[in-house]
């Protein structure tokens, strides 16, 4: 009985550890994930930010998100890496850690499926970065290419 209690204790600790890191690693992006993301965020204004390790301005937007996140919990932000290249996985994960974005939902395009993934989100987007989608509570997407300033992000996420 004591053994079982100990096992329960260990399992609890393991579960808590996993729960704490539930969003720590990036998830492969696909059609089902996109549907889930949309469903989960329905009814609130949220932001989808797409970035690449080869995009210096993207880092500026990640830094803004980092700052906002320090000031506010539970920001409705989904972050998606668009490199679609397994060679950069370690670099991508390092950047997510560096900008302290592990608590947010992080996804990445599957190796070789960059265009397919872009197409799922927006068939009229050519892959220029950073790309931000401002999504209304009714699920309507508004895309913007290029760096978005902090005031605009703050206004959208915190109003």
């Amino acid at each position: 009985m004591k053994f079982l209690k100990n096992i329960h204790g260990v399992l609890l600790v393991v579960c808590l550890l996993f729960a704490g890191n539930a969003k720590a690693s990036s998830i492969e992006f696909n059609k089902q994930q996109l549907a889930t993301i949309k469903t989960q965020n329905m009814g609130k204004q949220w932001l989808m930010l797409l970035w690449s390790v080869d995009c210096p301005p993207c880092f500026k937007e990640l830094a803004i998100i980092q700052q906002l996140q320090k000031q506010h919990n539970d920001l409705a932000i989904v972050i998606i890496n668009t490199d679609a290249n397994d060679e950069i996985n370690a670099e991508r994960d390092d950047i997510i850690k560096k900008f302290e974005l592990s608590r947010l939902s992080n996804f990445h395009f599957i190796d070789g499926k960059g265009a397919q993934s872009r197409f799922l989100i927006d068939a009229s987007w050519y892959g220029e970065l950073p790309r931000s989608y401002f999504i209304e509570s009714n699920g309507k997407f508004h895309g913007k290419s290029g760096l978005v300033n902090q005031a605009m992000l703050r206004q959208w996420l915190l109003q």
Binding site: H142, G143, K144, S145, M152, Q155, W156, Q159
Partner: peptide
């Protein structure tokens, strides 16, 4: 207020939105 904000924000966004 929220409706007004949304309209103004999206209008601003679209004015710079190259899509």
């Amino acid at each position: 207020y929220k409706s007004l904000f949304l309209t103004v924000f999206v209008s601003l966004l679209l004015s710079v939105n190259n899509s």
